[in-house]
């Protein structure tokens, strides 16, 4: 990467994270390990009056608001579990810093970060909302085929395996957050608004299919179908796809028709020849 871009990404990280500013000003070489900058370029970063990095105190709040638009239910659960400050803390995590430095998607990174929470309900709902976020971005994703690959799950589709009861919990909490309220984000961070108890069963999985059309739709799907599509989340050859079907109980003779059905339903995409 050209140095100016690496520098610009460090600048973004510094604007969002005062703790990172402190570490760069204290010891830029240590704070910027892994970022290819010269010693002179590192001095450019610490030349400004350090108060300038805090000139926009609402930057994190605005950024968080945009993220919570896509993750309201998981965000609301995190705020209840660990406090509202836990949401804001995202901007100081290694996940955030890696995303910016590697030009990743902030929305998808936030979803993955939420999905790593030890609470299985919160993690499961983050998976649901990240599936929606993924298909919303389908238009910007290009399929990269290599020789020998035949099929891939449509970029307009996302699938997840979730603990049983996650989808019902999602619907119930979403309803609580939106009932009689105009400001969804205010409800997300209003910890006085109780979300109720929503038991889930990690041993009883349920399948989620999200599809992008004129609007994004979310529904449940058979576990076998979900597992086959998960096997095709990155491009695979026909033989491997066939094995995935057989692993779910199909016979070898049924595989061509099953693949044809998925292609017809728009769940699978064939490599253009």
């Amino acid at each position: 990467m050209v140095t100016a871009k690496a520098l610009q990404r460090v600048v973004v990280r510094m604007l969002y994270d005062p703790a990172f500013v402190d570490s760069v000003y204290a010891d830029a070489e240590s704070a910027l390990v892994g970022v290819s900058l010269t010693g002179e370029e590192r001095t450019w970063l610490v030349a400004p009056d350090r108060r300038r990095w805090r000139a926009d105190p609402l930057r994190r709040t605005r950024g968080l608001g945009a993220l919570l638009e896509e993750y309201p239910v998981a965000g609301a659960l995190l705020a209840r579990r660990d406090g509202v400050a836990a949401l804001d803390a995202f901007f100081s995590t290694p996940s955030f810093h890696r995303c910016i430095q590697e030009r990743g998607s902030l929305g998808l990174t936030f979803g993955r970060w939420l999905g790593g929470h030890p609470d299985p309900l919160l993690a499961g709902i983050a998976e649901m909302e990240s599936a929606v976020a993924a298909v919303r971005r389908a238009g910007s994703r290009q399929i990269r085929w290599t020789v020998g690959q035949d099929y891939v799950m449509s970029p307009l589709v996302a699938v997840r395996l979730l603990p049983g009861g996650t989808m019902a919990a999602f619907a119930a909490i979403r309803g609580i957050l939106t009932r009689g309220r105009d400001d969804l984000i205010a409800a997300v961070v209003d910890c006085a608004l109780e979300l109720g108890l929503h038991p889930i069963d990690p041993d009883d999985l349920e399948g989620l299919i999200v599809e992008a059309g004129s609007e994004v739709t979310m529904g449940d799907g058979p576990l076998g179908l979900i597992r086959v599509l998960m096997a095709a989340e990155t491009p695979i050859d026909a033989r491997t796809l066939g094995r995935a079907f057989i692993g779910e109980g199909a016979t070898l003779g049924e595989v061509p028709d099953l693949i044809a059905d998925l292609l017809q339903d728009g769940l699978l995409v064939a490599c253009p020849r």
């Binding site: 100016a4 520098l7 030009r103 902030l106």
Partner: peptide, 20 residues
């Protein structure tokens, strides 16, 4: 920063260097 995503607009000046 990163790919275009709604709601994440910034506006920062460029790095003031020759390669930028």
């Amino acid at each position: 920063h990163g790919p275009r995503e709604r709601g994440h607009m910034l506006l920062l000046p460029p790095i003031l260097s020759d390669d930028a």
